[in-house]
Simulated scan of single mutants.
Amino acid sequence: METTAREFNQKSSQVLAAAARGETVTVTKNGVAVARVVPISEDDIPPHPTDPMGEIDLPDLGLPDLTDDEIEETHKRMGT
């Protein structure tokens, strides 16, 4: 299927529905193909967390642990 950029703008929900049905839609602008809307499968979607990630394990950089007051004092000395 092919559609113009103007048609895509006006009928994007129909174009997306076509992709959901398995069609590949090429979008053209001034007769030149500029984009392609393709169907995706469950395998194409990368896994992502749906729960809170919990604690973050940061590497030990060997830096000193500073208190909030020490950080604030450093910022004041830096003029921020």
Rank of each mutant, 00 (worst) to 15 (best):
V25K: 05
V25N: 01
T26E: 10
V27C: 03
V27N: 00
V27K: 08
V27L: 07
K29I: 08
K29W: 04
K29T: 14
K29Y: 12
V32P: 04
V34R: 07
V34N: 07
V34F: 14
V34S: 04
A35P: 05
A35D: 01
A35R: 06
A35Y: 05
A35L: 15
R36T: 14
V37Q: 05
V37H: 03
V38M: 14
V38G: 07
I40S: 12
S41F: 06
D43W: 08
D43Y: 09
D43P: 05
I45T: 00
I45L: 03
P47K: 11
H48P: 02
P49C: 13
P49R: 13
T50W: 02
D51N: 10
P52Q: 12
P52K: 15
M53E: 12
M53K: 09
M53T: 15
G54Q: 00
G54T: 04
G54N: 00
E55P: 02
E55M: 09
E55T: 07
I56G: 07
I56L: 13
D57I: 06
L58Q: 01
P59Q: 03
D60I: 02
D60C: 00
L61M: 12
L61W: 06
G62L: 00
D65Q: 06
D65I: 05
D65S: 05
L66V: 08
L66I: 06
D69Y: 11
E70R: 02
E70S: 11
I71A: 08
I71R: 03
I71E: 05
E72A: 09
E72F: 10
E72W: 09
E72I: 06
E72P: 03
E72H: 07
E73T: 05
T74M: 11
T74S: 12
T74V: 03
H75A: 13
K76Q: 04
K76F: 08
R77L: 15
R77C: 04
R77P: 07
R77Y: 03
M78Q: 15
M78R: 14
M78A: 11
G79K: 10
G79S: 11
